[in-house]
Simulated scan of single mutants.
Amino acid sequence: MITKNVLLSFGLTLIVGLSMAVGSGLSFFIKRNNKRFLSLALSFSAGIMIYVSFMEIYPEGKELIEAQLGEHKGTWIALLGFFGGMLLTAAIEKIVHIFDGHHHHDHGDHLSKLGLMSAVAIAVHNIPEGLALFTAGLKDISIAIPIAVAVVIHNIPLSIAISVPIYYSTGNKGKAFTYSLLVGLCQPAGAVIGYLLLSKFFNDITFGILFTIVAGIMVFVSLDELLPTSQKYEDHHLSVYSAIVGMIVMAISLGIFSH
């Protein structure tokens, strides 16, 4: 039976998911030939993704696993998940290069793939995050509201990591906006899937491992793709400074509403 609390929780999760479109929209106010903005946006996104991975996603996953399996075993499984996520991403990249290695690609193609890789990593993260927010709402909607605000704050800069590379590579605002929106909608989708199915099959260990894998994917994408690509368009010092600013923004957003 669908109760008022279920509808409120889902509505809150949907609003949070739609916030991904806001960051995407903001990036379109900058001229497409502004290479400095592209560089700083990419490194800013890297800072966001690295910080949120190490300070929120990985610790949350590790805590979930340790709560079920104990500190010693949980720590090792969390580390395997984290580095497994990195190896998985590296393997996928190698496979792509093998099948696509005989063709010359310009920066536009590279940027487009970069945006898609960021989209996949963030989408995988958004599904359990949406379920977590929805579950918190079911328990107590007053607890879920500050969590939702915090997620909205960090959804906006995360969406830049998706929309900016796609927009700069294709010039298509609609495509960049659509990808960001679809990734955002993974949060309410996670809530629906969790409510209908996953609560029966998934547990804290599964979610914990998923979180650690996602953290590994996001750190790898940041170090292997976002930062190096950023430094092609701008002085590497400015690129690093922008990444640090991204970390500060994420730190403040998580500090305002700790979740």
Rank of each mutant, 00 (worst) to 15 (best):
S230T: 05
G25P: 07
K31G: 14
G174M: 11
T135F: 06
A161H: 00
F82S: 07
G115V: 03
A251L: 13
L80C: 13
H72T: 15
C186D: 04
F83W: 08
L80W: 11
A150W: 05
T13D: 06
G25K: 14
H125I: 02
F29H: 12
V192L: 14
I95S: 09
S19T: 14
H125K: 03
G137Y: 00
L185V: 05
I141L: 10
S39Y: 04
I141D: 02
I95E: 10
G74Q: 03
F220I: 06
I98F: 12
G171W: 12
I162N: 00
I143P: 04
G84T: 05
I147Q: 09
V214M: 05
D100L: 14
H97S: 12
K35G: 07
V22R: 01
F82C: 10
I77E: 02
G81Y: 00
G171Q: 11
P157N: 06
F83P: 01
V183I: 09
I205N: 04
V124K: 01
K62S: 14
Y167C: 02
E63R: 13
L87Y: 11
S253K: 07
G246D: 01
K94E: 12
M86N: 06
T3H: 09
V6S: 09
N155V: 08
L69K: 10
F37E: 07
L40H: 10
M117R: 10
L210F: 10
H236A: 06
H104Y: 14
V183W: 00
V16E: 00
G84S: 08
S222G: 06
T13H: 04
K139N: 12
K200D: 12
D235C: 09
D140L: 08
A148M: 07
H110D: 13
V52D: 05
I50Y: 00
K62I: 07
F44W: 03
A136M: 14
V240H: 14
A148T: 05
A176P: 07
Y195D: 06
G208D: 09
V151W: 02
P59L: 05
I209L: 14
G108W: 09
I248S: 04
T206S: 15
H102S: 13
L116M: 15
T89L: 14
G255Q: 03
A136K: 11
V183N: 01
S222I: 02
I145M: 10
N203M: 08
